[in-house]
């Protein structure tokens, strides 16, 4: 095979997303010559604290995709229990079965080869609306979310505002 299947598959998904965009995010490449590194803009989901924000994320795919999952990182600053302070997203579907770094209770929603950029993004958007505080990557955010919600809201609002300013310039 001259071109690895992972790269063909990613090309196909990118073309499909450009042709039939999915509500809530837009997708492109960080560098047009590298199909393994994507840049995605997530629109803060309506009726959540993140509404109105524009969050830029990067997805890094391994050569073994879709057998192994990509990594995802928020480039825009964001305050959320399941996104660590460096922006790394920690949700179960981006982890392989057996990879128990965050001690998830359920193995049911681990990485599967049938996941696509679209299904990943749908999970991440739903995570924004509904944090999982049982396995937090940002412990401070999780604690605030549970115990001082108004402070949590304030920090998220600041991120949303900052993200809007960044988009404008």
């Amino acid at each position: 095979m001259s071109e690895p299947q992972s790269s063909l598959l990613l090309r196909k998904q990118l073309a499909e997303l450009n042709k039939n965009p999915v509500e809530g995010f837009s997708a492109g490449l960080i560098d047009d010559n590298d199909i393994y590194r994507w840049e995605v803009l997530i629109i803060g989901p309506p009726d959540t604290l993140y509404e109105g924000g524009f969050f830029k994320c990067h997805l890094y795919f391994p050569k073994e995709y879709p057998l192994r999952p990509p990594k995802m990182k928020f480039v825009t600053e964001i305050w959320h229990p399941n996104i660590d302070k460096n922006g790394d997203v920690c949700i179960s579907i981006l982890h392989e079965p057996g990879d128990d770094k965050f001690g998830y209770e359920k193995a049911s929603e681990r990485w599967l080869p049938v996941h696509t950029v679209e299904t990943i993004l749908i999970s991440v958007i739903s995570m924004l609306a509904d944090p999982n505080d049982e396995s937090p990557a940002n412990v401070d955010a999780a604690k605030e979310w549970r115990e001082s919600y108004s402070e949590f809201k304030r920090k998220v609002a600041r991120c949303v505002r900052k993200s809007q300013e960044q988009e404008e310039c």
């Binding site: 057998l67 079965p97 057996g98 049911s108 929603e109 599967l112």
Partner: peptide, 12 residues
């Protein structure tokens, strides 16, 4: 659930 945990993932 069983299929998602034990059948569909590679290397299981």
């Amino acid at each position: 659930d069983f299929c998602h945990q034990e059948v569909e993932p590679m290397y299981k």
